[in-house]
Simulated assay, not measured.
Amino acid sequence: MNLENSTQPLAPAREFSVLLTSTPRGAHLARFLAAEWLRTWGLLPGVIDTAEHLVAELAANAVTHGRLPGRDFRLALHATADMLRIEVTDTRGDDLPRCGPPSPDAVSGRGLILVEAFADRWGVDIGPVPRKTVWTEIDLLPAEAR
C-alpha cells in the first residue's frame, strides 16, 4: 500500500480581515461581511448562523466598550479544515470583558454569556498596547473526528 497516495492534503487555511468604524453601523457591517465571506468558503449554514451571532456580540462589545473616538476595530476570520476562529480587536486594552450574570432588570450585559454558549472556546489576548483581541473558536469537525 502506498501511503503517499492514500492521504489527502489538508484544505488551505482561509483568512479575512477588515478595519471597521467603531459605530453601530460598523458592527452591523462586521456581521454582514463575516456571513458573506463564510458563505463563499462553503461552510455549513449552521456554522454561519453561529458565527454571525458571535461576530454580532463581539463587534457590539467593541463598539460599546472598546471604542475610542477616531479609532477603528478589526474583524478577522481564520478558517481551517477543523476550526473557525473569529477575532475582534479594539483599542481599549485597559477595559477587559467580564462574564457574569447581569442584574435581572438590566437591558444589556448578556453578550458574553451568549458567546460562551455559542463558542467552543473563547478568550482575550492583550496587546500590542493599547489593543485587546477577543476571540472565539468553533469546531468544524465532530469530536470523534478531531
Rank of each mutant, 00 (worst) to 15 (best):
T64V: 11
A51K: 01
E4Q: 12
L140K: 03
A34D: 03
P24Y: 09
R146N: 13
L54E: 07
R121Y: 13
R110G: 13
L19N: 11
H53P: 03
D95V: 14
C99S: 13
K132L: 06
A11E: 12
V115A: 01
N61Q: 10
N2R: 06
F32D: 08
L29D: 08
L43A: 02
P97K: 01
A11W: 09
A56C: 11
L19G: 04
M1T: 14
A51T: 04
H53E: 13
D139R: 11
L54P: 02
P24I: 04
L33T: 00
P142V: 03
I126G: 05
I113K: 02
V129S: 13
L19P: 03
L77H: 01
H28A: 15
T7R: 15
R31M: 12
E144K: 11
S108W: 07
S22N: 00
T64A: 05
R131D: 10
E52Y: 14
H65Y: 13
A81N: 09
L114F: 08
P101C: 10
N61L: 03
T133C: 13
D120G: 07
L19S: 12
R85Q: 14
N5H: 15
F32Y: 08
A35L: 11
T136A: 15
A62R: 00
P69D: 10
P45I: 05
T7S: 11
L112C: 06
F32M: 03
T50A: 15
L44E: 15
P104D: 08
T40V: 14
R110W: 10
P130Q: 05
G46T: 12
V124Q: 05
A106L: 03
A59N: 02
F73E: 00
G42A: 11
A119I: 02
L96T: 04
E87V: 04
R25K: 15
M1V: 10
L96C: 07
T80K: 04
P24N: 07
G123R: 05
E52R: 15
A62S: 08
W41T: 06
H78G: 06
R85L: 08
F16P: 00
I138G: 00
A143E: 09
E87F: 03
V55F: 04
A34N: 01
T133V: 09
V129H: 14
A106E: 12
T21C: 08
